[in-house]
Design a protein around this nucleic acid. Structure first.
Length: 457
RNA sequence: GGUGGCGUGGGAGAGCGGCCGAAUCCAACAGCCUGCAAAGCUGUACAGCCCCCGGUUCAAAUCCGGGCGCCACCUCCA
């Protein structure tokens, strides 16, 4: 079973009981008001890999990830652009999934939308008011966090300390600065829904409680997101569930930042690169490999240099596949038991991954197999080399990286390659070199394999 | 003020009590291979002790105490 660091306990522990037939995961999804950036890409890749590891080791996974399709940012953008909130949300949800598809991120098993769960949210808020733990102000309904005994569990500090450091300066009718909005009263020109406590729209923290409990049930296995969701978002989700008398997530895991220089990449610092831009100019697998090569909880430096290094590493992997004609793995998740690869290699690989998702260590295991496969091939042991290379392909497949052994070669290039082979056969080296130069000018990398020109990009 | 995290070779980044004079990837250099290359392989260099000081231990990069530096969170944020 996969073990992960649990924010609630501070320890590394299994995310589900060993024999669990289905592992349930809830990953906080995006608010769709802009293009996804590299930080989104990283957390999405991290949890995609966690899911793939579970699938690879024979577990079923129910993977729920929401779309926040109503919030201030969406409203602002819609207002600026003179179109509806629904249009803005629909556009950026589409862009979101385009990027994720490019990254080979498996689609969630369910994608709940906040706007489809307003009725349930209204019911939850009603119950919280009935219990006296939520109260009205002149602009909405708030949760009284003092009613939640262990508030601060995820933040790692008790309520009074959180309050002491609160940077919230607005003085309003809130009983505590940490009380948070469950329901925002309707304003002119903004989308709203009817509710017994007045028309309005839900606050951000309420949707995930309702959707996760609704789809996965009480006591679901794992709730994840980026570090910054730890507090207040996850704390506040949990607070509502506790105040409602529900058992919430059993395990909380959080992934680290993408850094630019020494700073967190974020919207507010305007130092972000959109995922869409990155994917337009680089192999999506390189970004996945870059993420794989660092631990998910550590900060990750993303620069032109680190991406280029990942691309170089990826090239080496594809070279192996090309050299040994490794068949391309089918799309979708890999189940290790069905591929008949070396059990020792699998065991070392899985051990690393199940130990707090140690992808760098797992990748290091694979890298040694790459060398072994090449060495076997150099020694003329084709069969042994191919078996090793296939193991490499399968293990990388678990991480969501599929090797490519082939490149589309257009007719012109194929003709040049044929001419070059003829020149080489005639030992006309200057002509052969001229043709190689021409092919390289077309963007191909030229390699001789068994006397024949081989091309790839 | 509080909380969490981080500090390992040129870069990235594992290891978290002995197998570590430190994995793996990228970059560099040399050799082999090649008509020449590329790919691949092999080797070398790069961490004289893994931020500093003190301690525990037969044994510490790994544990404890104290520093220093950096990042983040306590407001929206993945």
């Amino acid at each position: 079973m996969l073990n992960l660091h649990d924010t609630a306990t501070g320890s590394i522990r299994p995310i589900a009981p060993e024999g669990a037939p289905v592992v349930s995961m809830y990953v906080c999804g995006p608010t769709v008001y802009d293009l996804p950036h590299l930080g989104h890409g990283r957390y999405v890749l991290v949890w995609d890999i966690a899911r793939r590891v579970l699938l690879a080791t024979g577990h079923d996974v129910r993977f729920v990830s929401n779309i926040t399709d109503i919030d201030d940012n969406i409203i602002n953008r819609a207002t600026e652009e003179g179109r509806s909130e629904a249009e803005v949300a629909a556009e950026f949800e589409e862009r979101w999934f385009e990027a994720l598809d490019a990254l080979s991120v498996l689609r969630p098993t369910e994608v709940p939308h906040a706007t489809a769960y307003v009725e349930e949210m209204v019911a939850l808020i009603g119950r919280l008011m009935d219990r006296g733990v939520a109260y009205r102000t002149s602009d909405g309904v708030y949760l009284d966090v003092s009613a939640v005994g262990d508030y601060g569990l995820l933040a790692g500090q008790p309520l009074d300390q959180l309050r002491a450091g609160a940077r919230i300066v607005t003085i309003d009718e809130k009983r505590s600065p940490l009380d948070f909005v469950l329901w925002k009263d309707a304003k002119d020109g903004e989308p709203s829904w009817d509710a017994p406590f007045g028309a309005g729209r839900p606050g951000w923290h309420t949707e995930c409680v309702v959707m996760s409990l609704n789809l996965l049930g009480e006591g679901f296995d794992l709730h994840t997101g980026g570090q910054d969701l730890k507090f207040p978002h996850h704390e506040n989700e949990r607070a509502q569930a506790v105040a409602d008398g529900k058992v919430f997530a059993n395990h909380w895991a959080h992934s680290g930042w993408v850094m630019v220089g020494a700073e967190k990449m974020s919207k507010s610092l305007k130092n972000f690169t959109s995922l869409t831009d990155l994917l337009a100019t680089h192999d999506a697998r390189a970004y996945r490999l870059l993420c794989v090569q660092s631990h998910y909880r550590a900060p990750l430096e993303v620069t032109a240099e680190t991406i280029a290094a990942a691309e170089a590493a990826l090239l080496r992997l594809d070279n192996l596949a090309r050299r040994l004609d490794v068949p391309e793995l089918p799309a979708g998740p890999v189940v290790l038991a069905s591929h008949g690869v070396d059990p020792d290699a699998v065991s070392a690989f899985v051990t690393a991954l199940e130990d707090d998702l140690d992808t760098p260590r797992a990748f290091a295991q694979v890298a040694t197999l790459v060398s072994a496969a090449n060495t076997a091939a150099d020694d003329g042991d084709l069969q042994g080399a191919q078996a090793l290379a296939w193991t490499v392909a399968v293990l990388l497949g678990v991480l969501g990286i599929r090797l490519r052994a082939t490149t589309d070669v257009d007719e012109d290039a194929a003709a040049l390659a044929a001419s070059r082979d003829a020149a080489r056969a005639a030992k006309d080296w200057s002509e052969a070199d001229r043709l190689r130069g021409a092919l390289e000018a077309l963007g191909y990398i030229v390699e001789d394999r068994g006397g024949a020109t081989t091309l790839h990009r």
